[in-house]
């Protein structure tokens, strides 16, 4: 029932978007749009293959960033899987999209662990890590909250309470959206497609 409703509403949105674009007044975006957009804070971290990743080197691509950790049960794999599904649905526009996962748990998410973790989602996605200091400054710049909770009664040892947004950065390096957890893949596809085809 919910799903039918969601499908129906997505068609309505699409119809509304078409009508609006025909009137020349634009497209309907579904994430948390940042107005006016500002440049996404630049950073350099290391990807799962040991290569340096600098955000500003990605100009020309739409970059989707999620901050999480591989021991996270649901929210992290769902968010990264949604980014991967959106990229698949974009078909010919897929090469314009770079998916990025930044670990907030470098202690457990070693480089080789990230390599294996990322392989579940999309072969083009990058899993980034860095020293505690490097990660702290990136998280601060993006307003990511992460609080370590000791779990003496769990084999995990600890868990991490964390915020769970998908950050959308356009071709020119501007942060355009901070998407809340709970949006659907077609919302992501809708918005990313807008930025892919955006002029200037």
């Amino acid at each position: 029932m919910m799903r039918k409703k969601a499908i129906l509403s997505s068609w309505l949105w699409l119809a509304a978007a078409l009508v609006l674009s025909a009137c020349g007044s634009g497209y309907s975006l579904r994430g948390g749009v940042i107005e006016p957009p500002k440049f996404a804070p630049d950073f350099t971290l290391t990807d799962q293959n040991g290569r340096a990743f600098r955000l500003s080197d990605q100009r020309g691509k739409i970059v989707l960033i999620f901050f999480g950790y591989s021991a996270c049960p649901n929210v992290c794999p769902v968010s990264v899987a949604q980014m991967a599904a959106a990229r698949r649905e974009l078909l010919q526009e897929a090469n314009d999209v770079q998916g990025v996962f930044v670990t907030i748990d470098p202690e457990r998410d070693s480089q080789s662990r990230l390599q294996r973790y990322m392989s579940v989602f999309d072969p083009t996605f990058l899993g980034l890590r860095g020293s505690d200091d490097e990660l702290q400054s990136v998280m601060k710049a993006y307003g990511v909250t992460a609080v370590r909770k000791e779990e003496p009664n769990s084999a995990l040892g600890y868990s991490i309470d964390h915020s769970a947004f998908i950050y959308v950065i356009d071709r020119t390096g501007r942060l355009r959206e901070i998407m809340p957890y709970g949006l659907q893949v077609d919302d992501l596809v809708n918005d990313v497609r807008f930025y892919v085809h955006e002029k200037g």
């Binding site: 049960p73 909250t145 909770k149 868990s159 309470d161 915020s163 769970a164 957890y181």
Partner: peptide, 11 residues
């Protein structure tokens, strides 16, 4: 797993 505001938790 619980959501408290913007924060995701696991216990």
């Amino acid at each position: 797993e619980e959501q408290k505001g913007d924060m995701m938790q696991m216990r």
